[in-house]
């Protein structure tokens, strides 16, 4: 099971046939495990990591720290949901420390993100304050280092 998931995590397009070879299992067995993992949410989604800058697309990302007033009975859940439902919010986390919610927000321009903060996020009842940090350079995402190992080459033949 772990080996099957690892193969898919490395490359979501790996076919069940190839995974069967890699893990020394039958194709049917692999298909069953994948189907089950998809069903029970172990596999959340198949995703492609795109270097948008390379594709010539503009994208601006920001990490936004949000301080919120927790509500009776539901704590942070209701406010968190109100916030993470916005499509601009790529990722949302409840965090310990000096603020409560950590958001990763994406837009085409800085103005987009500024508008999201002023018009959508700040006015929400219970949001006490925000701090927006624009991201200036992407070094690593989802475990992948961008433009990694430039210039590092193994020799072609060694003993």
């Amino acid at each position: 099971m772990k080996n099957i998931l690892k193969a898919l995590e490395d490359d979501a397009r790996t076919t069940p046939e190839k995974i069967a070879t890699m893990t020394d299992k039958s194709v049917d067995e692999v298909k069953t495990v994948i189907a089950q993992a998809e069903k029970d949410g172990t596999i959340v989604r198949y995703k492609t990591v795109v270097n948008w800058a390379k594709a010539g697309e503009q994208e601006v990302d920001a990490i936004i720290e949000v301080k919120v007033q927790p509500q009776k009975n539901v704590g942070f859940e209701a406010i968190a949901e109100e916030i993470y439902r916005f499509p601009e919010v790529r990722s949302a986390y409840l965090a310990s420390g000096t603020y409560d919610l950590a958001l990763l927000v994406a837009g085409k321009t800085m103005q987009d993100i500024a508008a999201f903060v002023t018009n959508k996020l700040s006015p929400i009842d219970g949001v006490q304050g925000t701090a927006t940090h624009f991201l200036m350079k992407r070094y690593k995402e989802d475990g992948v280092i961008y433009d990694d190992r430039g210039g590092i080459h193994r020799l072609t033949v060694t003993s």
């Binding site: 190992r149 590092i152 193994r154 020799l155 072609t156 033949v157 060694t158 003993s159």
Partner: peptide, 28 residues
């Protein structure tokens, strides 16, 4: 003499090469 070195020299400059000739991990 090492029979391996000859292949190292042969492979120099061949474009788009894929090497299964190494004896070390591809991990850093």
């Amino acid at each position: 003499p090492s029979g391996i070195r000859r292949f190292f020299d042969l492979s120099a400059g061949v474009p788009g090469i894929i090497s299964l000739g190494v004896g070390e991990p591809d991990y850093v």
